[in-house]
Simulated assay, not measured.
Amino acid sequence: MVSVTDTPTLPTVEVFGPTIQGEGPSTGRPATFIRLGHCNLSCSWCDTPYSWDATRHDLEAEITDRPAGDLLDVVAASGEPVSLTVLTGGEPLMHQRRPGMAALLDGLDELDQDVEVETNGTIPPTDELTQRPRVRFNVSPKLAHAGMDEKRTLRPGALKQFAALARDGRAVFKFVATDRDDLEDVRDIVRRYSVPARAVWIMPEGTQPGQLLASARDLLTDPYLLRMGWNLTPRLHALLWPNERSR
Rank of each mutant, 00 (worst) to 15 (best):
H57G: 13
H57E: 14
H57R: 15
D58W: 15
L59Q: 12
L59M: 14
A61Y: 15
A61W: 14
A61F: 15
E62L: 11
T64E: 15
D65N: 14
D65V: 04
D65Q: 14
R66L: 12
A68D: 03
A68Y: 03
A68K: 00
G69E: 08
D70E: 15
L72V: 11
D73P: 05
D73H: 12
V74E: 09
V75N: 01
V75L: 08
V75G: 03
V75C: 10
A76C: 12
A77D: 13
A77F: 12
S78T: 14
E80T: 13
E80C: 08
P81K: 04
V82T: 09
S83V: 10
S83K: 15
L84E: 00
L84G: 00
L84F: 01
L84D: 03
L84I: 06
T85W: 05
V86E: 03
V86A: 02
V86T: 09
L87E: 09
L87P: 05
T88R: 04
T88D: 05
G90Y: 02
G90P: 01
G90D: 00
E91F: 01
P92C: 09
P92W: 00
P92F: 06
P92N: 07
L93T: 08
L93C: 04
L93I: 08
M94W: 02
M94C: 07
H95C: 02
H95W: 05
H95P: 02
Q96Y: 01
Q96W: 02
Q96C: 09
R97P: 04
R97I: 10
G100R: 03
G100A: 11
M101P: 00
M101Y: 01
M101N: 02
M101R: 04
A102F: 11
A103Q: 02
L104F: 07
L104W: 02
L104K: 03
L105T: 09
L105W: 02
L105V: 11
D106I: 04
D106V: 07
D106A: 08
G107F: 03
L108Y: 10
L108K: 07
L108T: 11
L108I: 13
D109Q: 12
E110D: 14
L111Y: 09
Q113Y: 13
D114P: 06
V115K: 05
E116I: 11
E116D: 14
E116R: 10
E116Y: 08
V117C: 09
V117D: 05
E118D: 13
E118V: 04
E118F: 03
T119R: 03
T119C: 10
T119Y: 06
N120D: 14
G121L: 01
T122S: 10
T122F: 07
I123P: 03
I123L: 14
P125V: 13
T126R: 11
T126A: 12
